[in-house]
Nucleic acid binder design. Structure first.
Length: 427
RNA sequence: GGGGGGGUUCCAGAGCGGUCAAAUGGGACGGACUGUAAAUCCGUUACUUCGGUUUCGAAGGUUCGAAUCCUUCCCCCCCCA
């Protein structure tokens, strides 16, 4: 398998430094991608980078996953219009270990020579003093060079300015590359296209400091066809951690991609072959309403990110919530089967006592649950026809609910809009 | 240290004594149409027991009445040294 070719046909390649492809085709090469520990989980936006490393390893090269315990302390100004808040050391440590655990799922760390390796740049920065750094690293690059970078220039032109800390970021990341190049024979750095500037600082540093050569390659930033940001839903980022984004929601996120996006994303986010994908596309075009591509995409990623079992549950839940005649289906299940099917959607407990006297819908949606943040909002949404209980639209915000509204004597299914469900359990 | 500009509802950005819960745009959410798609159209976008109640960097003050005027403080940007 030819790594660069692979990225090309998948439409992932954005920019590549001259000589990189030749170098990679010569021999097994080590390459790395850095991940910033800005949160305690990776999100779907990181998946492109993860896929890049997977392809890298499948092509017989040795992938390094770098977690930025040190760079995370500085803050990457790339793509940021304002200075960022620094994270505390505790948070950072916690995040680093979370990310490491997630990355372990995707790469093979035990397959001989090209086993993946996990590194944390805090390890080589913790004992690097400020003075040593500015003498050994800072001296090799001019401020002029650093200021020409997009990430810096934009901030200098803008209104917010930029701290020295963030200005230095590229040096810190640049040194990572130098260190890995020198100590681990890591010759290639990869990353999203927004990282080009930072990566080049690294190759430049290697060249000036040691006269060595290193290579770089960046991947396309994922964009949606309609121009909106990839990876966001109404409830925020789509995380890989099932505690932050349930497998059901995760599956739904991918299922809901548009036809256009599905075509490019199935190439980027799955390992399916070109042939396989083209076949799926033909199928999809014949009967677009079946959403063959979206389903294949969603299933593939869900299994690899979570598990076969998680996918099954997600499918079951989706089937139930979006299928037809589903209330009957629910009646046949016992309580644990219901809870299992609803695992991925928000649940609330209410007491039978309250239901005995009847609960007004708006209270139910705001005080007893967090479906809506305020009664006013709940009322407006109900009036707009956006709320259903047990699959039936409710138009009177004053309606009360009692014991006999419960399905199976214990459940109430609240629906906000078309796709947001909540399960209320009475006990 | 000197001079200038500025902090408004999710964001951008109007308002510059009452008609302001605050224009406009974006975003977000909801509805219709569909395929749980895209495009399009429509609606909502501080809280409320619908009487009112709390909002315009913070605290005071002037006024019948302030986002709008005054005082102090905090923060941001630009220019000069």
């Amino acid at each position: 398998m030819d790594f660069v070719k692979e990225l090309r046909w998948r439409g992932m390649l954005h920019d590549i430094m001259p000589g990189t492809e030749e170098e990679l085709n010569k021999k097994m090469t080590s390459g790395y991608i850095g991940f910033d520990p800005t949160a305690d989980s990776l999100h779907v936006g990181h998946l492109t980078q993860i896929m890049t490393l997977i392809h890298f390893q499948r092509a017989g090269h040795k992938p390094f996953a770098l977690v930025g315990g040190a760079t995370g302390m500085v803050g990457d100004p790339s793509g940021k219009s304002a200075e960022r808040n620094l994270l505390s050391e505790d948070t950072l440590n916690h995040n680093v270990s979370c990310l490491e655990n997630q990355l372990k799922k995707f790469l093979d760390f035990d397959c001989g020579a090209n086993s993946a390796v996990m590194v944390n740049n805090f390890d080589w920065f913790k004992n690097f003093s400020f003075l040593d750094f500015i003498r050994d690293v800072g001296k090799h690059l001019t401020v002029n060079y650093m200021m020409a970078k997009d990430s810096v220039r934009k901030r200098l032109e803008g209104e917010t300015g930029m701290s020295f800390t963030e200005f230095s970021y590229q040096l810190v990341q640049g040194y990572d590359f130098y260190y890995l190049w020198k100590e681990k024979n890591c010759q290639v750095q990869m990353g999203g296209s927004d990282q080009w500037g930072n990566i080049v600082t690294g190759t430049e540093l290697i060249r000036r400091k040691s006269g060595g050569s290193a290579f770089a390659l960046t991947t396309q930033l994922i964009k949606k066809e309609d121009g909106t940001k990839f990876g966001k839903t109404e409830s925020g980022a789509v995380w890989l951690d099932p505690k932050k984004t349930s497998a059901y929601k995760f599956y739904q996120f991918w299922l809901n991609t548009s036809d256009e996006d599905a075509k490019s994303w199935i190439r980027i986010f799955t390992l399916k072959s070109q042939q396989e994908i083209e076949l799926l596309e033909v199928e999809h075009n014949q009967e677009p309403h079946l959403r063959t591509l979206q389903k294949a995409l969603a299933e593939d990623i869900t299994v690899r990110t979570h598990s076969e079992k998680a996918l099954e549950t997600a499918l079951k839940t989706s089937d139930f919530l979006f299928g037809n005649g589903s209330l009957e289906f629910l009646l046949e299940l016992n309580q644990s089967a219901v809870l299992d099917a609803f695992e991925g959607i928000p649940q609330f407990k209410i007491s039978n006592k309250q239901l005995l006297s009847g609960i007004i819908l708006t209270d139910l949606l705001t005080e007893l649950t967090t479906v809506f943040p305020s009664k006013g909002e709940a009322r407006k949404m109900i009036q707009g026809g956006g709320v259903s209980v047990n699959k039936e639209k409710v138009l009177d915000s004053g309606q009360t609910f009692k014991l006999d509204n419960l399905i199976n004597g214990q459940f109430l299914i609240i629906q906000k809009g078309k796709k947001n469900f909540y399960l209320l359990i009475a006990e």
